[in-house]
C-alpha cells in the first residue's frame, strides 16, 4: 500500500521547493536582495538624509534588514501565493499528502530560510561597511525579525487570498515601495509631522523602529512589538475569515 513520508519531511520538502522558487526568480531576487543591498550601501555612503546622531551604517543596516523582511514575507509571498491560487496550485497540493496545513508550514519555513540568507548577505555587507551592532540588541533584533516576518506573512496571505493575481502583483509591489519610505529604511521620527505618527502606527514603521532600537541602541522595543502584533493578529484573522483557496 502506498504511503506518505512523515509530516516533517513533507513540510521540509515543500519549504525547499518554495525557497528554490523564491531564490531562483530574478525579479524576486531583485526585491529581496539587490534593492535592500543598494539601499544599505546608498544610505551608508551618502550624507543625506540626516540619520541622527548614530553611526550611518548602523541605521542603514537595520533599515535594510527590515526592508528584507517585507520583501520576502510580504511582497514575495503574496505574489507567489496569488499566482499559485489562480493556477489551482493550492487546490492540487491540498489533495496531495502535503495538504493545506503542510502547505502553510512549508511556506513559513521557506520564508524563514530565505530570510536567513538575506540576513547573512546583508549582515556581511554591513559588517564590511563598518556596521557594529549592539551585542545586547541581537536577541531582541532576532525576535523582531521573526515577529515582523509573521505579521507581514499574515498580511500577504490576506492579500493573496482575496484579490486576483494581477491585483496582488500591483498592490504587493506598490506597498513595498510605499512602506520603504514609511519607516522601514528611515526612523519614523525623522519623517515630517503627520507622516511620522502615521508611519509609527504602520507595521513598516513598527518593524523598522524595532530593528533600529535593538541593533543601534541595544533596547527591547516593546511598543513597536505591540503594533506589529496588532497588525499580525488582524492579518491572521482576516486571512482565516476571507482566504479563498481557489481563484
Amino acid at each position: 500500500m502506498t504511503r506518505p513520508v512523515p509530516p516533517g519531511a513533507r513540510v521540509r520538502a515543500q519549504a525547499a521547493f518554495e525557497a528554490r522558487m523564491l531564490l531562483g526568480n530574478g525579479e524576486q531576487l531583485l526585491v529581496s536582495l539587490v534593492l535592500p543591498a543598494l539601499a544599505l550601501v546608498g544610505l551608508t555612503l551618502a550624507s543625506v538624509p540626516d540619520l541622527g546622531a548614530a553611526c550611518r551604517v548602523d541605521v542603514a543596516t537595520a533599515g535594510a534588514l527590515a526592508l528584507a523582511v517585507v520583501s520576502t514575507a510580504f511582497t514575495g509571498q503574496a505574489i507567489a501565493t496569488g499566482f499559485d491560487r489562480r493556477a489551482g496550485v493550492l487546490r492540487l497540493l491540498g489533495t496531495t499528502p502535503l495538504g493545506r496545513g503542510g502547505l502553510l508550514g512549508g511556506k513559513a519555513l521557506a520564508v524563514l530560510a530565505v530570510l536567513a540568507v538575506q540576513v547573512a548577505v546583508l549582515g556581511a555587507l554591513g559588517l564590511a561597511l563598518g556596521w557594529r551592532p549592539q551585542p545586547a540588541g541581537l536577541l531582541p533584533a532576532l525576535l523582531t525579525l521573526l515577529l515582523g516576518a509573521g505579521s507581514f506573512a499574515a498580511l500577504a496571505l490576506l492579500l493573496a487570498g482575496t484579490v486576483r493575481a494581477e491585483g496582488v502583483l500591483a498592490v504587493a509591489n506598490l506597498v513595498w515601495v510605499l512602506l520603504l519610505g514609511l519607516g522601514l529604511l528611515l526612523p519614523t521620527s525623522s519623517l515630517p509631522g503627520p507622516l511620522s505618527a502615521l508611519a509609527a502606527a504602520l507595521p513598516s514603521g513598527a518593524l523598522g523602529d524595532a530593528v533600529r532600537a535593538a541593533l543601534v541602541d541595544g533596547a527591547w522595543p516593546w511598543g513597536p512589538w505591540v503594533v506589529l502584533l496588532v497588525w499580525g493578529t488582524a492579518g491572521t484573522a482576516g486571512a482565516v475569515r476571507w482566504f479563498r483557496w481557489s481563484g
Binding site: T2, P4, A16, N25, F83, A87, G88, V89, P97
Partner: peptide, 29 residues
C-alpha cells in the same frame, strides 16, 4: 495524509506552479 497518498488527482485547471519546470516539480511531489 495517509488517505491522500493513496489517491492520485488530476484537476481540470492543472494546478501546476507556472514558474516551475516539470522534473523538479515531479521530484518534489
Amino acid at each position: 495524509a495517509g488517505h491522500r497518498a493513496r489517491v492520485g488527482v488530476m484537476l481540470q485547471d492543472g494546478g501546476l506552479p507556472t514558474t516551475s519546470r516539470p522534473l523538479p516539480l515531479l521530484h518534489h511531489l
